[in-house]
Structures are given as structure tokens and as C-alpha cells.
Amino acid sequence: MRNWLPTFCFVAIGLAIGFGIGYATSSLNIIFDSPLVTAHASVHSDSFTKVLTEIGNLDAVESVVGRCGSTEDFQRKSLAAEDLAIRKIQEATVGSTLDPPLDVARARLATRWAIIGEKRNDIALKARSEETTQQLLQTAGWRDPSAKHMREILSRWDAEAGVCTSAGIKGKQSR
């Protein structure tokens, strides 16, 4: 019995180490494929998987854009990532039967740029972004395609989610 004890211990140690390495390897693979971490779907994925990954990525980025306390640099990077995700979705939908309303996503993005323009007192950026929003919402068939309307929707949305845009902050202050 005593002769078996060290053998048993070494087998148990080996199993535990092997299990841990296997678990970590697989977990890291999964985590790096997650929409929270991965930038884009694999080039070998089919068009549906690409749309699924990119649209998940878009949602992940959108959920952090405009968070209170985030720096302008972070917001600009997030919006650039959002823009890239939208373009990737557009590319992925070419080979699929899907046609998500990307004009609305682009209009939302343009509205967020307008908010940044307003914060920086960049009137040109604000005006250009609001014009883009209006054009996109007209294409999307909105009954009220004004940038103001989209801004109201975003402010309400951000306020409920606990994130803040300049409009959201103003809204809270006025309350």
C-alpha cells in the first residue's frame, strides 16, 4: 500500500496540472473569440457567423460608448471601433440573406460624433454629423428623421443605462 502512495500522488499531480493547462488553453481560446474581446470574426467563418460576431462586437462597443468618466480619447477610439464593426457587418451581409438596418446604426454613431463635437465646441463636426444623421434616418424611412429626435432617443437610452452623454448630464442637472 505504501509503495502505491507516491505513484498515486504523482498521477494526481500530473492529472491536475494537465487539467489546468487544458482548461486554461481552451478558456483563453474562447475568451479571445468573445465579442467583448475579439475585434473581428475569423476570415474563414461563413457570412452568418461573421454577421453574428460583428453585430455582437458592435453591441459590446456601443454599451461602453459614452460611459460617465470615460475620456474623449476613449470615446473616439470606441466610436472608431463601432464604425469599423458597422463596415465589417456591411461586408459580411454581402454573401448572406441578412440585411440589418445599418443606416440606423450609422445614424446613432453620427449622433455620438455630434455629441463629441458639441463637447469640444467643434461646430463643424457637430453640424456635419447632424446632417449625416438626418440623411441616414431619411434613408431608413423614419417619420421624424431629425438629428434632434435621434439625440432624444439616445439620451433616454443612455440615462436608463447609467451612461452619460452631454445631453444626459444636462438632463440630470436640470432635474
Binding site: F10, V11, G14, I17, G18, F19, G22, A24, S27
Partner: peptide, 26 residues
């Protein structure tokens, strides 16, 4: 050799267990 052999057995067990747990969550 024993440790190595046990590691080779443990690796796929850990890998597939992660697929079932972390993979499902992901």
C-alpha cells in the same frame, strides 16, 4: 513519466470541461 502521462490524460479532460462551462457561457 507518470506525471507526464497523467498530464496527457488531464489535458483533454480540462479542455473539454472548459468547452462545456466557459464555452457555454461565451
Amino acid at each position: 513519466m507518470l506525471v507526464l502521462a497523467a498530464m496527457l490524460v488531464g489535458f483533454p479532460l480540462g479542455y473539454f470541461y472548459s468547452q462545456r462551462t466557459v464555452g457555454k457561457g461565451s
